[in-house]
Design a binder for these strands. Structure first.
Lengths: 185, 185
DNA sequence: AATGTTTTTTGCCAAATGTCAAATTCAGAA
DNA sequence: TTCTGAATTTGACATTTGGCAAAAAACATT
C-alpha cells in the first residue's frame, strides 16, 4: 500500500500509530476529468494521490490557466482555502483515472497535534513545498521563457504529461510561443 | 520587546516557556549594507527582524537580482540552505540599520521538538509562506507586467522601499520597462 | 550654491512574446 | 482504413519587453 509506505518513510511513527493513521484515510477513485476539488468549494481534506496525475488550474476571464501538476506519491492539500476557510480559486482535476486516499483536515490535524513525529512531518512538508515554490519564483524573476522551459523539464519531468497549452500556462507564456521555443531547441 | 510580542501572539506558549524561548535569542545590530547572510554560506540560524528592512538578492552572471524584501516583525530563515545543508544562493543585506534577534537552528529546533505549540507555530509559518509564494507564482503565470506591478504594490506596500531597479527585479522585468509602466499609469 | 553620485527617465532599435486564424499533424473511434 | 475532433504548428502582424546609452532628475556632500 503506497500510502502506508509514504508515511512510513516520511514520518518516524511506530507501526501502531502508523497503522492507526493509515486507517483514518479512505480510499477513493476518480475517473478522468472528475474533480478532487472545484473552484468555490472550501477545502477540508488532505489527499494522498496513489495513482494517476491531476492538474490544478485557475480560471481567469473564462480562460483556464493550469498552474501545477500533482503526481502520484504526493500529499495534496489546498492549504490557502483550508486555512483561511475561503472558497478555493483552484480546481483540481484528474488527468486520468486516479486512486487516492482522503482524510478530513480536522481528523489529520487532531492526530498531528498529538504526535511530535507527525508535527515534524508537517513542518518538513510545507518547508519543502515552500522551497520548490521559491525556486519557481526565482525562475520567473531571473530567466527568460526558453531557459525557464529547460529548467521546468529538467526538474519536473512529469510536465511531459501536460498538453502544450497546459505546459505553456505553467510557464506563463502562450502555446504558440512555447511551440516556437520547442522548434528552435 | 517586539520578539516577545511576536511569539506571544503567534504561539500559544505559556509565559514561562515563552520567556525561556526568548532568552535563547541574541539581540544584534547591523549597519546599512551589511549582511545577515552571504552567498556561499550555509544557513544555520533563524532571525527575527525587529527593526529595519533587508533585501534578499541572487547573483547571476555577475548581476544582482533582488528577489524579496524582509520586513520588521518577520521571522526570517533561508530554509533551503539550512535544511539541505548546501551553500545558499542568496545574500540578505540590511537596507538600513537593523536590529534583529538570532537563534541557532539546532537550538530553536530542539525547543520546537519539545513543544506542540511551537511545532504548530512552525507549521503555520511555512504554510503561510507557501501560500504567499504560490500567489506570487500565479501572478507570473496569469498576469502581464503592468498587472503584476499593481498586484505587488497593493499586497506588499513595503515594496515602495526598494529602488526602481530592485523592484523591477522582483517583478521579473527591467528597470526601463518598469519606468515606462509607471509613466502610463 | 556648487559638485559629484545615484536613480530614474527617455530614445532608439532589436528581440521576445502575444493575438488570431488557418493549416497541419496526431490520435482515437467507427 | 477512414473519419473526426483535438492538439500542435505556422504565418502575418501587433504589442510588449529588452539592451544600451545618454539625458534628466533626485539626492547627498561640501
Amino acid at each position: 500500500m503506497k500510502l502506508h509506505e509514504f508515511l512510513k518513510v516520511k514520518t518516524a511513527l511506530n507501526d501502531d500509530l502508523l497503522s492507526d493513521l493509515v486507517s483514518k484515510f479512505k480510499k477513493k477513485h476518480l475517473k478522468t476529468g472528475r474533480f478532487l476539488l472545484r473552484k468555490g468549494q472550501i477545502a477540508d481534506s488532505y489527499w494522498f494521490l496513489e495513482d494517476g496525475f491531476c492538474r490544478s488550474y485557475y480560471v481567469k476571464n473564462d480562460v483556464e490557466h493550469t498552474v501545477w501538476i500533482e503526481a502520484p506519491g504526493e500529499l495534496v492539500c489546498e492549504i490557502k482555502s483550508l486555512r483561511l476557510q475561503i472558497p478555493t480559486e483552484y480546481s483540481i482535476q484528474a488527468m486520468e483515472p486516479i486512486t487516492y486516499y482522503t482524510i478530513k483536515s480536522e481528523v489529520l490535524e487532531q492526530l498531528v497535534s498529538e504526535s511530535a513525529e507527525l508535527q515534524a512531518f508537517m513542518v518538513r512538508l510545507w518547508e519543502t513545498r515552500f522551497i520548490i515554490a521559491m525556486d519557481g519564483l526565482r525562475a520567473f524573476q531571473t530567466m527568460g521563457a526558453k531557459e525557464r522551459y529547460g529548467y521546468l523539464l529538467k526538474n519536473f519531468p512529469n510536465m511531459e504529461k501536460l498538453t502544450l497549452y497546459q505546459l505553456a500556462n505553467i510557464l506563463g507564456i502562450t502555446q504558440s510561443s512555447l511551440s516556437r521555443i520547442r522548434r528552435l531547441k
